[in-house]
Each structure stands twice: as C-alpha cells, then as structure tokens.
C-alpha cells in the first residue's frame, strides 16, 4: 500500500480497539455474541432478528468495561476506513437502519412506554445537556458521563449511530419530516444528537485525551 511505501503505518484507532477487545476474554466473547446475533438471518424472513441483536448489544455495553466499549465506539478517525469501522461497531444493518425512517416523536413514544428505554433516554438528556455558559459545553460538565449515557441507548428503540463514514455526526434512525404541529419538539429531540455541543465536545475530547495511551 501507499503507506508502507513511505515506511509509515496507518494509525487506525478503531482497529486497535478491535484488537484490544479480541485479546480480552470477556470483551471478545460478548462482542462475538452480539455480532453473531446481529448477522444471523432468521429462517422466516431472511432478515436479522433485531430484537435479539439489540438484546445482545445491550448486554455487551452493560457488561464490558467502558475502557473497551468506548474505544470501539468513539475511536477518533482521520480516514474513511477507520470511520466506516467505527460506524459498523453496532452492526447498523440490523440494529439501526430500516427501510423507512419513522418519525422521531413516534419513536420517543415507543421508548417512553418501556421502563429501561425511558430511563436511559432521561439519563442521556441529563448527562449530555448542552450549555452555552459552561466551559466545556456540558451543563453537567462531565464528558465521561455523557458518553456513558450515550452508550446506554444502544440497543434501544432510539439507538443512535454515526450517520455516515466521513463525519462524526450521530443521530437515531428517525426523521422530523411530517411532524405537523410537533415539528419544534421533534427538532429539539433530534438536535440533542446531531446539534449538541456537549455531546460533540465529549466525542472529540475522547480522541485527544486518550492519545497518549500506549497501544498494545
């Protein structure tokens, strides 16, 4: 490749994160469990079983230490190979995307009907609350808590993910078109993901803070 020609190795933090997970027994086991669950087609429809996939995802993010999960999910990237790997972390083909984009308000209603999802969403909105007056953009002032609350949503009705392989913009799979009178409320909800200074700073800080970490 071009990189080896000039005697350089491409730094791909997301690949390093995968390695760190693979050589750890618990991380490797639970990652394999969710990947297997998320890529397995069901006999009936040939599609994946989203319910099982989500359940395995929640198990992974609940039980594996954040040292591993956050590296996999928030690894900083400078090229698309890295960013695509990062986007693929949650197996979005099964856990995230669907044929149509439902309305975000509808999704919130489904989430609020579920005890775990409701509390996770509330936690996210609390820990990632943006602030114009706070120095770091977060009302609670804690990046780690915001990222943890973000991962708490993975595998729920409002699973967020990177929207493409070139930016670090995140959003749940829903839209605010056709929101009628609730357009403003909907935009505010979606803005919590794709236009949130606290979350954006937390994601960016994650990359630079752990720059000095030794790579295995």
């Amino acid at each position: 490749t071009a990189d080896s020609d000039v005697g350089m190795t491409t730094v791909n933090r997301c690949l390093d994160a995968a390695k760190a997970c693979n050589v750890d027994d618990l991380c490797q086991k639970l990652r394999t469990e969710y990947v297997s669950a998320c890529i397995k087609p069901t006999a009936k429809s040939g599609l994946c079983n989203r319910h099982k996939c989500n359940k395995a995802l929640r198990r992974f993010f609940d039980r594996v230490p954040a040292d591993y999960t956050h590296e996999l999910l928030f690894c900083p990237c400078t090229d698309t190979a890295c960013a695509e790997r990062r986007r693929q972390t949650i197996v979005p083909g099964c856990s995230y995307e669907s044929v149509e984009k439902p309305n975000c308000i509808t999704q919130t209603r489904i989430c609020n009907a579920d005890y775990v999802c409701r509390s996770r969403l509330a936690q996210f909105q609390y820990d990632c609350e943006p602030s114009k007056t706070s120095a770091n953009g977060c009302n609670q002032g804690n990046y780690g808590a915001c990222l943890l609350a973000y991962t708490g949503l993975l595998g729920s009705t409002i699973t967020p993910n990177y929207v493409d392989n070139s930016t670090s913009s995140v959003a749940p799979w829903c839209s605010c078109s056709a929101s009628g009178s609730r357009r403003e409320e909907c935009d505010r909800f979606l803005g919590y993901f794709n236009d949130n200074i606290c979350l954006r700073n937390a994601l960016m800080a994650f990359g630079s803070e752990s720059d000095q970490q030794p790579t295995v």
Partner: peptide, 8 residues
C-alpha cells in the same frame, strides 16, 4: 467457541 470480526 465462536469468534467474530469485521473484514476489510
């Protein structure tokens, strides 16, 4: 047991 990975 099983092992999962993302290919290139």
């Amino acid at each position: 047991k099983d092992f999962s990975f993302l290919d290139n």
